[in-house]
Design a protein around this nucleic acid. Structure first.
Lengths: 140, 140
DNA sequence: AATAAACTATACCAAAAGGGTAAACAATAT
DNA sequence: ATATTGTTTACCCTTTTGGTATAGTTTATT
């Protein structure tokens, strides 16, 4: 019951980009150094953020990463889903056939978990990068 | 970002016990059969529920399991914690020294995750076994 | 065109967690 | 005594996680 380390790193990377002047390309090594994330690992997770339309990249000299949309329009759920895929508190919420009792629709545990998951998702959604900005930039 | 299968099984086991006449000992094999849980696996997770004071057991002929307290006083968080241990959305919430940036207290991601976790916990707490009872007993 | 500086794509690996099975043991009612 | 039921411990296989390595592609600059 937790987020993965990759998601935590992604949160930080994306928040760091949000703290930079809009549109400015930031090299991976700066992000890695600032946020104390293993460089190679960071490079591995960035493509997921790009595919999700959260970040854009440019190769070659002077290249790097930048947010693909305004910090106000990116929230924690977006980033988490980009890295881990959709949240499913229980596998019966992915597909009811996973329920060994084959009782998903009328199962009250199923319904309770569905509600709890919805609430968790909207909690994550309620924090945008813009909301979170502020404490990330202070120690450089 | 999900509950384990063991927790799902525990939910069902405990809910099944809640559906039985109070204080009546139910054999593991009945629980396993009713809830379609692998018998051996069920036997493995029951001790965790006992240690947490959720279930009591009796050995020997006529033995089995029963709830250790009223269904009203057992909620989903109790059961989840008994099986998986406490929820920590991120490892920096277990111990701030896990934060590679060593910035936990003033980190707004940290604070956001702490809030989200609290909300998740109280959502889980809000469902007691008594609340959930009703649809579990119909198909026997 | 050459080159160096970036990101990209695969593949690989070790450790941990997840999901389950097995066997020997301990308690208890009859 | 004995059969029944839970307990304990250990084991095993698979998947996920966290991370590293290597080769390749794009691009600004000279």
């Amino acid at each position: 019951m937790n987020i993965t380390q990759a998601t935590d790193y992604a949160f930080r990377a994306v928040l760091y980009l949000a703290s930079q002047p809009a549109g400015e390309m930031v090299e991976a090594q700066f992000i890695a150094r600032q946020q104390v994330v293993p460089m190679r690992f960071l490079l591995k997770i960035m493509p997921s953020l790009i595919k999700a339309g959260i970040v854009k990249s440019q190769r070659g000299v002077g290249g790097g990463y930048a947010l693909a949309r305004p910090a106000e329009e990116i929230n924690l759920l977006d980033v988490l889903v980009a890295i881990e895929g959709p949240i499913f508190l229980n596998r019966c919420l992915i597909d009811e056939s996973y329920c060994s009792r084959q009782a998903a629709p009328e199962c009250l545990v199923h319904q309770a978990l569905a509600n709890i998951q919805k609430s968790l998702e909207s909690d994550l959604e309620s924090y945008s990068l813009a909301d979170l900005l502020g404490s990330q930039d202070e120690e450089s």
